[in-house]
């Protein structure tokens, strides 16, 4: 069956996973370096740098092809995006509630695009890996 090309999501070759792994330790080293060079660096800025890099790392992992990208993996991928979004909504709701209990306000400077993208991509990755784990355990 032919697929609508506008809906097609091209995936990166598996080798990109190695590049994605660089994005996890890199911001930590960057923040430490910044703290040494600029001791007055705002800790919130440091957190945003880390969230941003980790969001990119998870984003690359989520858009990288598996060695065999068959229909089961495609179904897992679709389910992971749906589940990741579901967890994001509930997670942000929980953060808002905690924020309200602690500071009596719903809105907070902590809710940045970097944080949301990091959480979304992280949840999607976790949901995808969890499905692969369930499929691989109890091998026949």
């Amino acid at each position: 069956m032919k697929k609508n090309s506008i809906l097609n999501v091209p995936l990166l070759p598996p080798g990109w996973k190695k590049l994605a792994m660089v994005f996890f330790p890199l911001p930590v080293l960057l923040v430490i370096g910044l703290a040494v060079v600029y001791p007055d660096t705002n800790p919130d800025d440091a957190a945003q740098i880390i969230y941003g890099f980790w969001a990119i790392g998870f984003g690359i992992l989520n858009l990288t092809r598996e060695k065999v990208e068959d229909e089961m993996i495609r179904e897992f991928r679709q389910q992971a995006f749906q589940t990741g979004f579901f967890w994001l909504i509930w997670g942000l709701g929980a953060l808002m509630l905690i924020n309200y209990i602690r500071y009596q306000t719903i809105a907070s400077e902590m809710f940045t695009a970097y944080l949301v993208l990091f959480l979304l991509n992280g949840y999607i990755y976790a949901a995808f890996q969890y499905q692969k784990y369930l499929a691989s355990k109890e091998d026949n």
């Binding site: 068959d70 229909e71 499929a135 026949n140």
Partner: peptide, 19 residues
């Protein structure tokens, strides 16, 4: 059938329903 061995295993175990 051009899928992974894992997919065949999951189908046999009833964990995945094929298209």
């Amino acid at each position: 059938v051009q899928v992974s061995r894992q997919t065949i295993n999951s189908i046999e175990a009833g964990k995945y329903v094929p298209s």
